[in-house]
Nucleic acid binder design. Structure first.
Lengths: 238, 238
DNA sequence: GTGATAAATGAATGCCATTCATTTATTGGT
DNA sequence: ACCAATAAATGAATGGCATTCATTTATCAC
């Protein structure tokens, strides 16, 4: 790890000191507005996603983001108000990747199933966004809003009583977000270790599930909960 | 803002400089092991909870924690390995406050209902813990483990097939954690603002729910989802 | 009694988001 | 065609943060 970083950024100054924030080979940009704008929100979003994909959310710093865009960190603040703002851009990009295509073409239960699995899969790779999303007004996230619109229309067309649609979506979303965290949990999360004797029922149940040898226990739990929600909510339709 | 801070902490040194890490009035402790230990995990947990209660999770820093305990920040590391370790202590303390008393005395569905509401209520005040909990092996959290034991026993006694117990609890927990975030969301989170016209179904559904004038819409959604899960899971019992 | 260990201080370290003064280029109004 | 306002960049701070380390002092086990 440290060795790799050192290779990228030699601690000693190179003969011709490499400009610290520019792609290799380019000349250091002088201060002042450049002829053509370098940054925009789309580019920042793309670079952020690339960084997250390569280095994870720990690697997503304003400095690293600036560096990958060949720009000084402070330049980012001409286009976003804060790091949370960057996270919002990323979130909205991801929302567009959630599959809502089945609403309008497939039966309601099939559509909900496809949407929820897709939603969970997308955000299980991006759980650090969840605390941000959960509290963020949708007004600033057009693609997220578009997702809600598609889902809402699907519920309405399926005969859902209108006053219950938002509550049902909120409940499903809560389940999806919680389940997204579960995907990231280590396999041995339920290993009670030295305390196992003190929690015999729990230990037995954990062992009994392990004996089933499911490829992904987290998927079993998600399926169980999702089917219960679909069945329960399906009964509300007129 | 700046003026207020300056008033609390004058930039110029006071005549008798106040010791920075000690409760008012006490003498600065000299270096070296004190006769009686000042810190232990219980004290750290209590101080952390107090700090969170007064200043929120933003106010919970290792420096602030040390200060409230009358100790240098580095002293904390003789008792916890990291800040995440402090969060784990807090989490385990809270787990003990979750109401599992109905398991063993009340019918299964009543017990699940009481547990889930209580669980959500406790952690909705502590959502920053959720990312930590979700990934943390239970072996290091005895009170959390005790909660799982009580719930597992309740499910088993209710005739739940043993291989499904953990999956059902995991699903319920996912829903609880997601719903805990929802509690903290601002009221106008679903206000589409200027984009309202582009999402007519969504806007209509939001308005229709608002017209119901529920005291806490988040509770309506939680109730809806929880009852669906209870009904769905209840059918699995032998 | 003595060596190992435990628990404190205090001084660093390095990383981080963010701000600000400054420079340069574009744009819109007259 | 000018000129003021604005936009977009640099580069140098700033302050906060968790964590580490050398050092000091006290207790505990043998």
């Amino acid at each position: 790890m440290l060795g790799t970083q050192a290779a990228e950024r030699p601690p000693m100054p190179a003969p011709t000191p490499a400009p610290s924030a520019l792609p290799a080979g380019s000349v250091r940009r002088r201060a002042g507005r450049p002829t053509a704008a370098i940054l925009d929100q789309d580019g920042i979003t793309t670079a952020a996603l690339e960084l997250i994909s390569n280095k994870g959310y720990n690697g997503l710093t304003m400095a690293a983001l600036a560096r990958s865009l060949g720009v000084a960190p402070s330049a980012l603040y001409n286009h976003v108000a804060s790091k949370d703002d960057v996270l919002l851009l990323v979130e909205d990009h991801l929302a567009a990747m959630v599959d809502v295509s089945a609403f309008g073409s497939e039966p309601w239960d099939v559509a909900v199933r496809r949407w929820a699995w897709s939603y969970r899969d997308v955000f299980s790779e991006h759980t650090p966004l969840i605390p941000v999303i959960a509290v963020l007004p949708v007004a600033n996230a057009p693609k997220t809003l578009a997702m809600y619109e598609a889902v809402t229309a699907g519920f309405r067309d399926a005969g859902f009583p209108e006053e219950k649609i938002i509550s049902a979506i909120v409940a499903l979303e809560a389940f999806v977000f919680g389940a997204a965290y579960d995907v990231t949990a280590p396999e041995d999360i339920f290993d009670a270790g030295s305390l196992a004797e003190q929690v015999p029922n729990f230990t037995a149940a954990v062992d009994r599930l392990a004996a089933e040898e499911h490829a992904r226990p987290t998927d079993v739990a998600f399926n169980l909960g999702l089917e219960a929600l679909i069945t329960g909510f399906g009964a509300l339709r007129k």
